[in-house]
């Protein structure tokens, strides 16, 4: 426990505190010119400490101070009704639902592709370059078109956004699963041969269990990518609902504090999702008889 305290908690906390301090300094530096301008127009000459306080309390600062963001985040998360349009919980839920749907599609698709690649040599050679090339396509650039075009034929709501998440999340799963399904040693594969196991039996009893750790590692990456897809997918719909929409409407009206608290909410969702996948992974591994690390 003391090791953990010394090796991890103390340094991380120290760095985080340093970052917050730097943030305050930057907030002062970036907001000062505008505040000076305001004071000159109003004919005031505040003292230094008064001036610093003023730079931290602007309604639309260039860079909001951390406590401004914290207050805004707290108000919009806990003090508003969950169904309210201004509640961050509501927006986070909208984003979360399309993230999860897209993640589910992406994981299934990735696993199917991986199974195909491992079992058919022709697929390995012809599909793999395409999968890699598919990720050099900036899919997020496609997002507006997918949304608008699908809306043109009457598909709106959750599915178009989820499709973008799917595209982003299938790749890590496919690559990780190919690695995982190929991870059993030759010795183990040979053992299955001596048992006269069929291809299906080898798959279910050896390859699939061996690939589980790889699957969860890549699902962590995939769910983060899925969230990014969902957020960007909300941009072209014209800022209706969701964290992306909140960011866009914030940028329309220069509501920097709102934008920052939306960012905080998005980051929080990301951390929760990745942690959840990690916990599920650990439970599954333990249920399969793995040793806890």
């Amino acid at each position: 426990m003391t090791d953990r305290l010394r090796d991890k908690i103390v340094p991380v906390t120290a760095i985080l505190l340093g970052l917050v301090a730097a943030w305050y300094v930057f907030a002062y530096v970036m907001n000062a010119p505008f505040q000076r301008d305001l004071d000159r127009r109003a004919g005031e000459t505040p003292g230094f400490s008064e001036f610093v306080v003023k730079t931290m309390t602007q309604p639309k600062p260039t860079l909001p101070a951390p406590h401004q963001v914290a207050v805004n985040f707290f108000e919009n998360t806990f003090l508003r009704k969950v169904t309210s349009n201004r509640s961050l919980v509501y927006h986070a839920w909208v984003t979360l639902s399309s993230t999860l749907l897209g993640f589910a599609f992406g994981t299934v698709l990735g696993i199917l592709i991986a199974v195909g690649i491992v079992h058919f040599a022709a697929l390995d050679r012809s599909l793999m370059p395409w999968i890699i090339a598919s990720q050099t396509v900036p899919i997020l650039a496609l997002a507006p078109m997918i949304i608008v075009v699908l809306a043109a034929i009457g598909i709106t709501g959750l599915v178009p956004k989820a499709l973008i998440s799917t595209y982003l999340s299938f790749f890590p799963v496919a690559v990780g699963m190919v690695k995982g399904l190929r991870s059993p040693d030759i010795i183990h594969l040979d053992l299955m041969r001596t048992y006269n196991a069929s291809k299906a039996e080898t798959f279910w009893k050896l390859r699939l269990p061996a690939s589980v750790p790889y699957l969860f590692a890549s699902m962590k990456v995939a769910i983060a990518a899925s969230l990014v897809g969902a957020i960007v997918g909300e941009l072209p719909t014209g800022a209706v609902a969701g964290i992306g929409a909140k960011l866009l409407s914030g940028s329309y009206y220069s509501q920097t504090i709102d934008m920052f608290s939306a960012l905080v909410a998005g980051s929080l969702v990301a951390v929760l999702l990745v942690t959840a996948v990690g916990i599920v992974g650990r439970i599954v591994e333990r249920a399969m008889g793995g040793q806890s690390a």
Binding site: V228, I231, F260
Partner: peptide
């Protein structure tokens, strides 16, 4: 793991 792309509107403002 964070959706860093979200800083885009802020950078455009700055």
């Amino acid at each position: 793991a964070l959706p860093i792309i979200g800083v885009a509107p802020i950078m455009v403002m700055w």
